[in-house]
Amino acid sequence: MNIVFRIFYAIAYFIVLIIEIIKATFDVAVRTLNGKIEPVIVEIETELKRPVSQVILANSITLTPGTLSIDVDSKNCVIKVATIVPRAKEDVIPFEAYIKGWLE
């Protein structure tokens, strides 16, 4: 893919990551007050094939408060994620498409 698109996706990834972090920070801060927590562990299948992009995806999952990556199965492309409340897959990894455009 063109190098210009890759740079564009990298910048867009960081902007989306920072917005998600700010949103999730206030969400978890409110949940500490009202006590609506229900920690669960889900397995998420990712489309990313390269190990470096899987590691970056797992790191950004952990960096977002409210989601926490436990283990990465690199061969089967499965990430074990602990979330503070049960959530849909798209809400846990909204930045997967940007990493795909950036590194795949």
Partner: peptide
């Protein structure tokens, strides 16, 4: 699984 919730709160 309260430990995971505590790690989430430490992320804040």
């Amino acid at each position: 699984r309260i430990l995971y919730a505590r790690v989430h709160m430490l992320g804040v």
